[in-house]
Structure formats: structure tokens, C-alpha cells
Design a protein around this nucleic acid. Structure first.
Lengths: 131, 131
DNA sequence: CAGGATCCAAATAGATACTG
DNA sequence: CAGTATCTATTTGGATCCTG
């Protein structure tokens, strides 16, 4: 299962895909839909911070990529339900791994950031004797 | 290993981390450094399409997050080597999983995109009888 | 309810020129 | 060689208004 084909081709296509599946909102949506079908407004409320526009765009892209299905019920008021496709389901594995990694190491990362920033400060505001 | 703590907090911190590790160039760099230490210009050539500025920024961020080390050799001409830290090494697992997923399903995705786009065309340029 | 359309502010990326 | 600094072009995202 190694990945070694033609470098350039893979990298551009891959960057393309990674941009989508590594996207913040996409990850959130997939994470949410993992639990089952959801309506637009449910997702909007569940995902905290997402704007209507971004949620719409994210869902459209995921649909376009074949990762989620969009089902419109011709009622009034309208109801639209989103769910993961089989392909989308297979993504929850890798995404979950990344998620777990982030959860596990977020403390280490934020500590690293703090000390890095402190070191930068030192380098730029060097001498400061007394006040 | 499940992840269920306070939703909002986790999501914002997580989105932050995911933006970094899901970033196109970061993934490329980590993928490259997996094979061992590399110099700046080696990375630049290896990563096809990355600008000098983006590579610099990416490497700085990865360094700040404690994922790569930056070693400067005070020579002329200067030599700078980058390598994964232990923390960085642990990322290669999840990243690899994502990479493999993308490699495995990129055909399905691009097909899905094509048919989605074709369907969109149909919907917007509906009737077109003869020429 | 579930968006589409529009406007605008901010973040981001590329190209270019310069430096120790 | 390995950057930094700067300028600009493009992308992105939020806010707002409107509709079936």
C-alpha cells in the first residue's frame, strides 16, 4: 500500500484532495454525519461558528466529491437531509486517526508554540536591563 | 481513545491544528522529511510547485509546532537542515493513512466531480435541440 | 427551512528584489 | 544558499438581503 507513482502528478492531485478533506469545516461535517443523517439547520447549530454560506459551500463540495448525499424533501417548509456515502464512511477512519492525534498532542503543540514565541521575543527585544 | 470532551473548545482548538496538519504544503513537507533530513533547497526542488516563501512559512510553522527541527550550519555558503522531531514522526502515521486514502480513492472522487459538474451543466443549460 | 446572490473585509499565495 | 521584505493578485470568509 505504498505510494510512489509519478511524483508531480500525485502531488498536485493529492494537494487538491487534501485541501478538501483537510479543510476545517469538511472535517467537522464528516465528523458530525458519522453519527447519521442530519438536516441543514441541525448541522449549522451543531458545528458552532460555521456561517450559512460556508456550510452550504462545504456541503456542496462534499457532495460533488461523492462523500455526502443530499436529499431534498419537497415539503413546505423544505427539508434537506445530508448523509455520508459509502465513500464518505471510509473517510471517517483516517479522519478519526488525525483527530485523535490532534487531541492527543494538542498540549505538546501549544507548549511548543508558546516557547517558540517566547524565544522569538527574546531575539527581537534583546537587551532590557532593569525597566 | 474516543474524543468527546466539551464540544466548542475542542472544535476551535482542533480546527486550528487541523488547519496546520491538513495544510497542503505541510503534508508535503512531512511526507518528504519522513525519509530523513533535508536541506532547504532539496525540499524546494522535491516539492514541485512550492514557492520559496511558502516553503519558508510552512517550515517555520512546523518548527513552531515542534514538528520539525531546524539546524543552521554556520558555513559559507550557509547550510540549513530540516528533520522531523519525535512528535513529527508520530504524525507520519495519520498523515500516511490520509495519503493512502486519497491515493486509493482519487479516481472515484474525480469521477464523482465530473458527473456532478455534468449534471450541473444540464440543469443550467437545459434545452438545446439540434444546434 | 434551506438556501442563492451580493458586497466587502481579511487572510493567503505568488512574484520580485534584496541580503548575510 | 537560505532566507527576508514588499507588493500585488487571488482566495476566502462573514454579513446581509432576498426567495421558493
Amino acid at each position: 500500500m505504498s505510494v510512489e507513482p509519478d511524483e508531480a502528478m500525485v502531488c498536485t492531485a493529492m494537494g487538491d484532495i487534501l485541501n478538501r478533506i483537510g479543510d476545517k469545516w469538511s472535517v467537522m461535517v464528516v465528523g458530525r454525519l458519522k453519527g447519521g443523517t442530519m438536516r441543514f439547520s441541525e448541522l449549522r447549530r451543531a458545528i458552532d461558528g460555521v456561517s450559512q454560506r460556508m456550510l452550504t459551500l462545504t456541503l456542496r463540495n462534499l457532495e460533488r466529491d461523492g462523500l455526502v448525499t443530499r436529499t431534498v424533501y419537497p415539503e413546505i417548509p423544505p427539508r434537506v437531509e445530508y448523509a455520508l456515502t459509502e465513500l464518505g464512511q471510509t473517510l471517517t477512519g483516517p479522519i478519526g486517526a488525525l483527530w485523535d492525534w490532534a487531541a492527543e498532542h494538542q498540549d505538546a503543540i501549544s507548549q511548543s508554540r508558546t516557547s517558540y514565541d517566547r524565544a522569538q521575543m527574546m531575539a527581537h527585544e534583546p537587551i532590557r536591563r532593569r525597566a
